[in-house]
Structures are given as C-alpha cells and as structure tokens.
Nucleic acid binder design. Sequence first.
DNA 1: AGACTCGGCAAACAGTTGTTTACTGAATGA
DNA 2: TCATTCAGTAAACAACTGTTTGCCGAGTCT
Lengths: 212, 212
Amino acid sequence: MSHSESGTGVRQAQKQQSRRALLDAGLRLLEQQNLSGLGVREVTRAAGMSPAGFYRHFPDLSALGVVLVEESLANLHGMIRAALAEQGGQGDPEALIDRAVEVVAAHVREHRAYVRFLARERHGGVREVREAIAAELRRFADEVAEALALQPVSEGWPAGEVRMLAELYVDLLVMTATAFLEVGPQGEAELARTARTRLRLISVGRRHWREG
Amino acid sequence: MSHSESGTGVRQAQKQQSRRALLDAGLRLLEQQNLSGLGVREVTRAAGMSPAGFYRHFPDLSALGVVLVEESLANLHGMIRAALAEQGGQGDPEALIDRAVEVVAAHVREHRAYVRFLARERHGGVREVREAIAAELRRFADEVAEALALQPVSEGWPAGEVRMLAELYVDLLVMTATAFLEVGPQGEAELARTARTRLRLISVGRRHWREG
DNA sequence: AGACTCGGCAAACAGTTGTTTACTGAATGA
DNA sequence: TCATTCAGTAAACAACTGTTTGCCGAGTCT
C-alpha cells in the first residue's frame, strides 16, 4: 500500500494487543502482590498466553515494571499539567491547592491500580523500577517548580529554594494519593480536607518565611 | 533449682538464639528483596537451619515480618521519646526540630536494614505487615501529638488539629528517614538541611495559621 | 506466487518451592 | 535415675519456577 512510514498494520496491532494483555494482567496481579514476588508464568497465565510468549515482548519482569511506571505517571502528569496551566501564574494559590487535591483524588479513583503499583514499588525490591519511579517524580517536581516560580509569592526566591518547595509539594501529593488508597469512600472527603490543610500550612509558612 | 518462675534456662535460651538467627537472616535478605518474594527455605538456609525448623518459631513468613516491624519501631520509638522528653514542653521548637532530624539521621545510620525494611513493606504486598506498620506509626503520632500539645504555640488549638499536625510531622520524618537511605554519605548533610527547612516551614505556617 | 518474517506454542530442562512426616537426642522435671 | 518434653532434622511430597528449544502458521514483502 504505502511506500513509507510504518507499512505493516495487522501484525504490529496484534503484537501490541498481546503486549497490552501482558501489561494489564501484570498490573492486576500487582494489586495484591509485589513485583519481586511476581512470576513470568503467573503473568502469561493471567494474560492467556504461553510462558515463552512473554519473552517476545519483554526480556524481564523488571522491564514490564518499568513500562508500567511510565504509563502510571503519564496520566497523572497530564492531569497535573492541565491543572497548573488552567490556573496559570496569576491564579490564587488557595484555589490551586484545592484543584490539585481534587485532581489527585480523581486520579486515584480512576487509576487505582496504577497508584497502588507506584506506592508499592517506589521503595520495592526491584532497582530498575525504583529508579524509573524516582526519575519520573523528579520530572514531576520540575514541572511543579516551574509553576511555582510563576506565582507572585515566589518573587525574589532563589531557584534552589523554589525547587525544594516543589519537591515538598510533590512528596505531599504522592502521600495524599497513597492515603486515598487506604481509605474507604466515606473517608475521602475528610482525607481531602486534611490534605488541603497540610498544603495550606506550607503555603502560609512560605508567605511568612522571611520574618522567621 | 528454683521452685517457681521460669524454671527452664538453657532450653529457652537456645530457642531464642535460633529465633534470632532467623530474624537476622530474614532482615538481611530483605535488604535486597521484598517480603512477598522471600521464601522459607531461603531464610532457613541463610540462618543455618533445616527448613522444617522454621515452623517451630513462626507459622508464616508474615509472622516473622510482623516481629521485624515491632523491633524496627521499638528502637526509633525509644530515641524519639528521649528527644522529646529531653526538650520537654518548654524547649524552643527550632531546637526540637534540629534534634529530631539528628535523631532520625543517627537512627538510619545505626539501623539501616530496619529502616529499609519499613520503607519497603509500608505499602508492600503483605497485609498483616502493612497493618502492623500502620499501627506502630499511629502510636508514634500519638506520642508526637502529646509532645506538641505541651508546646506554648499550641495554646488554644483543638486536639484534632494538633493530632493532624503530629501526623504531618511523622510523615515528614518517615520520608526523611527513607530519603537518608537513598543518599550517599556525602549527601547526608544537605539532606538534613532540607529536612530541617521543611519542618521549619511547617512550624512557621503553624505560628501564622490564624491570620491566614 | 513464492520467499520470508516473526508472534505464539508445546515440550522439555534442571531447579526451586512450602509443608508434612517420623525421627533423634539433649535439656528438663519428678 | 528414668520418663517426658520439644527444638531441630532428614526425607519425601506434589507442585511450581524461569528459560531454551524447535516448530508452526498467519501476516508481509517483492
């Protein structure tokens, strides 16, 4: 058909489908288990595939884990980026905090398995996955730092301190996300409230920082 | 010999020694692995014992994990309790923060394996262990809340808010501890500095809370 | 049309696993 | 001293593991 670009169609599509089945099965199994305790056969069985088939897609279970990491944060990344852009530099910080907590809550509701996976493997036993998560969170902090620098409150703050602040916010948001996992639907509202208070506490501290 | 109390001596001592060997071997193996990926045979092999011997001490690997949790926090608990008592209610909060970070740093240096274990299994795949950690951290927060309530700054604060503040401090300290794990010896000083700044930020926020 | 690529499979490999069984022998209590 | 307790053992169990091999057959290219 075409004389350039991809060329193949059905072939790659089928492969991607199998790959997706493996990723989905893995993610599902990892809701109740650690990556270092997961088995190749276990995943292929759950994906309806022969054990050997796994190696056509990933060399390792670690490799599958790394892909899951990227997928995990791609979503959240997008949502946060949208939230930050929406408020821009001139939005009032209080509203931004509310929006951020809201976004995190929604994200957990929609991608529960991914969030649990991240929380579980962030300090888990597989180095490559740990490092992948750390790298993504670093990029996440970059983005938050960028947004913070635009706020009027950051006038005159050195980049290093803004960056530190951003990391603090990211850590708090990640903690909030994992806390959402462990709370029932009826506890969500209160958790969101305390999360907002935590963030506001930082916000207030920041405004009065110079005076000690 | 004696006609009451324990009676047996050598017997129990030998058993305790084997039990310790199992716990130590487990802790060592868990430095590079997750509990859900650990095996009974693996542990007994590392402890120089027959596989069946394990069941004379623990029904499960989860049970061993729970014991490790208790041991992990017993130390830290004691150190923090000492630091809090040392300052009492009248010590200045800044100094208390410095002392707390110092204590955490020392604790990580001395009990690296325990701290890594806690960080790894806090959200790990074994429910019983997760719950044990959560329970211990809750008790930890109780203690911090008690200390915070004694500070003059907490005048007029409702107990619920003090408690929330205590949880925030605990979360930050735990995060600091796990961060110490991932940083080389030359990065420790800077990490301690940013940890202190984070805590001070909260402190400042708290002082100016009412005025918004 | 024919040659070729390559995702998926069945089978085999040599190990490993958790747990139970019946046992041994030293520390114990009378 | 003699019977009892019980921590630790060796052996066996069936089931499972990760990975490699050769093969098939559908999708692809010329």
